[in-house]
């Protein structure tokens, strides 16, 4: 989950607070490849179907990393919140996926 210094929401405001300054777009992305052990296990799991836990964990780690990078960027700009956050996931090659997260850095009271 995101760090405590920066409030992140995917709506246009920070509930209960007023936006006093706008810093523009901040973004973070992370690309991770699955390692061979996970790939093998997922391949086996694929025979019976259902959740592929290894991949879920991998994508969660990737997402946390992308969020952290976005928050760091916002922090350096002097923001204390990020609004209107969106996520995008793409498989950029057979073995790797990218998670991209972007939003607007703001300062709230």
């Amino acid at each position: 989950m995101p760090n405590t210094k920066i409030t992140v929401t995917n709506i246009e405001t920070i509930p209960g607070k007023t936006i006093i300054e706008n810093y523009g777009v901040v973004q973070g992305s992370s690309v991770r490849a699955k390692h061979i052990g996970r790939d093998l296990m997922a391949g086996l799991k694929n025979l019976v179907g259902g959740e592929l836990v290894g991949y879920t964990e991998l994508l969660n780690e990737t997402r946390s990393e992308a969020l952290k990078r976005m928050e760091d960027q916002a922090f350096h700009l002097g923001a204390n919140a990020i609004v209107n956050v969106r996520f995008a996931t793409s498989a950029i090659s057979a073995g790797a996926s990218e998670i991209f997260v972007y939003g607007t850095a703001v300062r709230v009271q």
């Binding site: 995101p2 409030t7 509930p15 179907g49 959740e51 997402r63 969020l67």
Partner: peptide, 17 residues
């Protein structure tokens, strides 16, 4: 006055043979 936070949940599934 209220607090807010981004929450998320994800799951990866595969089909069986």
């Amino acid at each position: 006055p209220c607090n807010s936070q981004l929450v998320y949940g994800s799951v990866v599934v595969g089909q069986d043979y």
